[in-house]
């Protein structure tokens, strides 16, 4: 699902792929499962100072990357977006690993495939 452009190996978890604020926004969305921008902002605001507009920008960026889905809910408050994660957190992290491994195999071919074989057969 995820297509990595760049991976930051000095970071851990989702931050290898996402910016710190994108990671916080996505983590909050995993917690809420389905939420409006201002609900995510309220949850994040309990831990750090962040502008509502920055949360809106991060959500739009996560949507463009295909990590979250959104739908317009024309409720009482008027045509706002409702965001939800496309996959579970586990599936999302798995897709990051999958894409990274595929990229290594595509770049280094048999060397990478051999390495993985030796590395994981040793452990058995």
């Amino acid at each position: 699902m995820v297509k990595l452009k760049r991976m930051r190996l000095d970071k851990k978890g989702m931050q290898t792929f996402l910016s710190p604020l994108e990671t916080d926004v996505l983590t909050a969305l995993y917690k809420l499962e389905k939420a409006r921008t201002r609900e995510i902002h309220r949850l994040l605001g309990q831990r750090r100072k962040v502008a509502l507009t920055s949360v809106a920008v991060m959500l739009d960026r996560l949507h463009q990357k295909g990590i979250v889905r959104r739908a317009i809910e024309d409720g009482r408050g008027g045509g706002h977006y409702i965001y939800s994660p496309r996959t579970s957190r586990h599936e999302f992290e798995e897709s990051i690993v999958d894409d990274a491994v595929n990229k290594l195999i595509n770049s280094f071919g048999p060397v990478a495939a051999n390495y993985f074989y030796k590395r994981f057969s040793k452990k058995e």
Binding site: T53, G78, G79, H80
Partner: peptide, 28 residues
Amino acid sequence: IIDNANPVAFSFKSFKSMMFLSAGLIDM
């Protein structure tokens, strides 16, 4: 309501008057 995360609002009148507000605008 237009499906756009950017905060956008515009209106025009040709045969009928129309006003467009983006979902992103209403969100924030």
